[in-house]
């Protein structure tokens, strides 16, 4: 049992490590004009921004744990290139490709699994221009879900909240900005920082969010209270800020 539980913590740790590196890259590459105090200012991760992800997390490029962690993060392993417009590191493209090819979704995959795989593939196509678009998973559920459930499920797919990667999910998010904003309010009240951060990222991308939400302050709030214990919170908040700074 001890072996199993030890192995079980390796993947989540790797996901956290990669997410921290990606968040740091987004922080370093975005506009430096805004003061951003908080836990993200850790200098030791900021130093590891350049270079491939594998080196930053001290793993070999073909390490199966690294590939699995990249599959968990989906398109977010390429988020710096997608959000900042910088050329992707070729090793990171290779890693994303390996993750995509190693873990194709099965016929009975959940919407989250299927869409995150599709998002990884779409991100690779966007950056490399290679390959043909795969068949997009079903998104019909986005029209009928009550707002709390819609918000929760989209928060799990925040890696698809990317400029330049169109999807039926992004189209659905554009149609229901107030419902996603309600989800953000609910998530903060429940202190579900991962959900709040993921929704904050969608809300930074879509038009029609009521200004009374106070999204920039809300993101900072979520980052302060939830960022220290979950690097994916920091990643989504960083991505959201980048999207807000790029917005017209």
């Amino acid at each position: 049992m001890s072996d199993a539980s030890g192995a079980a913590s390796v993947l989540p740790d790797a996901v956290q490590n990669i997410a921290a590196v990606v968040a740091s890259a987004l922080a370093g590459g975005g506009s430096r004009s805004s003061a951003s105090p908080g836990p993200e200012a850790a200098p030791e991760t900021a130093a590891a921004v350049s270079g491939p992800l594998a080196a930053a997390v001290e793993r070999t490029p073909d390490d199966p744990v690294l590939v699995a962690a990249a599959r968990v993060l989906g398109a977010d392993v390429l988020a710096p290139a997608l959000l900042l417009g910088t050329p992707p590191d070729p090793d990171d493209v290779a890693l994303a490709t390996a993750a995509r090819d190693a873990y194709p979704p099965g016929a009975d995959a959940t919407a989250v699994t299927a869409w995150s795989h599709w998002g990884l593939d779409a991100a690779l196509r966007t950056l490399t221009g290679d390959g043909l678009p795969g068949t997009a998973p079903d998104a019909g559920w986005t029209a009928d879900e009550p707002w709390p459930r819609l918000a929760f499920r989209l928060s799990q797919l925040a890696s698809l909240a990317l400029p330049g990667v169109d999807s039926a999910l992004a189209t659905a998010a554009v149609k229901r900005p107030v419902d996603l904003a309600r989800g953000f309010v609910r998530a903060v009240r429940r202190r579900d920082w991962a959900q709040a951060a993921g929704l904050g990222r969608w809300l930074a991308l879509v038009p029609g969010v009521p200004p009374s939400l106070g999204l920039p302050n809300g993101l900072a709030f979520v980052h302060h209270l939830g960022g220290a214990s979950d690097a994916r919170v920091g990643l989504h908040v960083r991505a959201a800020r980048t999207l807000l700074e790029a917005a017209p």
Binding site: W147, V178, A181, R182, G183, R186, R189, P210, S212
Partner: peptide, 17 residues
């Protein structure tokens, strides 16, 4: 009225939960 129409459902939902 617009503010409450937007946010009341979120407050109500969490209070019920």
């Amino acid at each position: 009225a617009a503010y409450l129409t937007a946010w009341l459902p979120a407050w109500l939902g969490t209070c019920l939960e």
